[in-house]
Amino acid sequence: MAERPTTSWRHGIAEEAQELAAGTLDPDCACMAKLFPEKLLTATDAVLDTFEGELPGLGRASDEQVFAVVERIVLALNAVDEAHNGGAFETGEREELCDYIDESLTEHGVDVVALTARHGLGRYQLTDRWRKW
């Protein structure tokens, strides 16, 4: 099952907190909690919850239906990013979110390579039409 990016982000926060508590990390080098405040994690998880609820049956859906689901998650993530002054998702986070979307669709029977090819897109252009983050 595709792992949510928020899971690894939370893990990073917890790891950093342990290192700070143990004195093995200089507080000036700690950044995870600042990069991923709980409000951002909660909002992102809410978007991912909705997306995951739409996944069952997509392997039998039309291209238009799959693209509609992708559009909805991307627009919702755009709103999360905008609520955090356009700085919620940096390059690494963008890649994790896009990989998560791709892997989740694939796990539910969507051939992402074939889907994007039918529409003149490369696999990694699946979210580009709507993505602002």
Rank of each mutant, 00 (worst) to 15 (best):
H11D: 10
L105S: 09
A79Q: 09
G23K: 00
E16S: 03
T127K: 05
R60F: 10
E19N: 09
E64Q: 13
A21S: 14
T42Y: 06
D111C: 07
V69F: 05
R129D: 13
A117E: 15
T127E: 07
D45E: 08
D111L: 06
E15H: 14
H108R: 11
A33G: 06
F89Y: 15
C31W: 09
R10Q: 14
G57P: 09
I73W: 04
T106I: 15
A83K: 05
A79S: 08
Q18P: 01
Q65I: 06
F36L: 06
Q65L: 09
A43K: 03
A114W: 08
A88H: 03
V113H: 13
L77D: 01
M32C: 12
A46M: 01
V74E: 02
A79I: 02
V47L: 01
V110Y: 02
M32Q: 14
T91C: 07
D99H: 07
Q18G: 06
C98I: 11
D99Y: 08
L35P: 02
C29K: 13
V74I: 11
A76G: 04
E15G: 15
V66R: 00
Y100W: 12
A61E: 01
D28M: 01
L77P: 00
V69H: 03
V80E: 04
A83N: 07
L105E: 10
L97F: 12
A61C: 04
D102V: 12
A114V: 13
E64S: 15
G109V: 03
G109F: 02
F89S: 01
L121S: 05
R129A: 14
H84K: 04
R118D: 12
D63V: 07
K132N: 14
L48K: 01
I101S: 02
A88W: 02
W9F: 15
A2D: 09
V74S: 03
E107M: 07
Q65Y: 04
S8D: 12
V47Q: 01
E90A: 13
K34H: 10
V74F: 04
G92L: 14
L105Y: 07
C31E: 14
E3P: 03
D81R: 00
E93G: 11
I13R: 02
P27T: 06
E95F: 11
T44R: 06
Q65G: 04
H108T: 07
A2W: 11
M1G: 15
T116M: 08
R123F: 10
L55M: 11
A79W: 01
D128F: 12
L105A: 10
I13F: 06
A79P: 00
L25A: 03
E52F: 00
E90P: 04
A43P: 00
A76M: 09
D111K: 06
G87S: 11
L121F: 08
T116A: 05
D28Q: 08
V69T: 10
T24V: 09
D128T: 14
T42W: 05
L55Q: 09
F89I: 04
R60D: 15
V113L: 15
L48N: 00
S104G: 07
L58C: 07
G87L: 10
G120N: 03
S8A: 11
T6H: 05
R123E: 11
P27G: 11
A79T: 09
D128W: 12
H11F: 10
D49C: 07
Y124T: 08
E95K: 14
D28E: 13
A83Y: 03
V113C: 12
H108C: 08
S104Q: 03
I73C: 05
A114L: 14
A43Y: 03
E19S: 13
